[in-house]
Simulated assay, not measured.
Amino acid sequence: MSVPVSLDFQFPRDCYISTRSKWERDALDYLNSTNWELHYWRSCHKIKKFSVLYDIPYHEKFVKDIDLWVYFASKLANVERFELRCGDGYEFPQYAFTNTSWRKLVLQLFTSLNPLANVNWSGMVSLSFRYIYWTEKVLSGCPNLECLKLYHFVDVHCLEISNAKLRKLIIDNSESDEYDLSLDILAPYIQNLKILGLCREICLRNVASLVNAVLDFDFDCFIEDKEPLPRKESTCLKELFHRVAHVEKLELGPWCIQVYSYSSLSKIQNIFAIEFIA
């Protein structure tokens, strides 16, 4: 119990194709097994990682079990990294917004993070959100945050990051076929930026400290030799390149290369290196 451990629980994949009655039995077996293991490990001195993958349709009768996992990770055990992936509709409990032991948090909830009071995640250095809408209270409660990863997030149109220690920002919409992502980014302290996947519009308002940038996105516009990029997207793309003209290293994906010729790129001054992503 004095040795740091990692606990990983994953719902059996073959249960997804089971009949309803068998699926419910398997689900209960999985829940009971997981809960018993957590009861055993509750007094462990240090848990480096606690991960639960319960990526199945949401059921209200299982809420107490998911609550138990969150309570274990946030209040009962000394967990350093907590990862929770569950189905649509689960509401992250309010008590979990106060925790000083978490250093890394990975959440996939298909819902909103809505803290009613101030967030206190003072030990947090890395946040990873997938299919989540969140508020500014979350970032303001993470004064030591160094890395923020956002995967397929929706309903956020202005991302203002004032955390002085945050150095890395990843925005990844590559797992989705939806491109209705329009985002203004104000992040004066970040040094590393990645923008991946489909989107409609990305604007960088303030990235003065940026050193490395990876632009591997697609505005999802149909382009042929005789059909120029629509004016709005073209203007946005040119402005985006202008905003990263001071970086030391710039990596470009296929779409960016296609719509912005190398001759145009050569006009950008002070770029240390440009790499093309195959």
Rank of each mutant, 00 (worst) to 15 (best):
W36H: 12
S122R: 02
K48S: 14
D218E: 09
P93L: 04
D184C: 07
V214R: 11
P93N: 06
R25W: 03
D177G: 08
M1W: 09
S122A: 14
Q258Y: 13
C15I: 02
C221T: 04
L196F: 13
W134G: 04
S140L: 13
S261C: 09
D55Y: 04
A117P: 00
L107D: 01
M1K: 13
C86G: 07
G123W: 05
I47V: 15
V154K: 14
L148H: 02
I66K: 00
K267R: 13
D220C: 15
L240P: 05
K149I: 14
L139P: 03
D225P: 00
F11C: 08
L250Q: 04
G197W: 00
P115L: 09
F82D: 00
V247C: 10
D55H: 04
E136I: 09
I257Y: 07
L139S: 01
N212C: 06
C142S: 10
I195T: 02
Y16E: 15
S74C: 12
F241L: 14
L7E: 01
R205C: 09
P254D: 07
K249C: 10
S101F: 05
N35W: 00
R167F: 00
L166Y: 05
L252A: 08
L237Q: 10
M1C: 07
I202P: 04
T19Q: 04
E275R: 10
W41S: 12
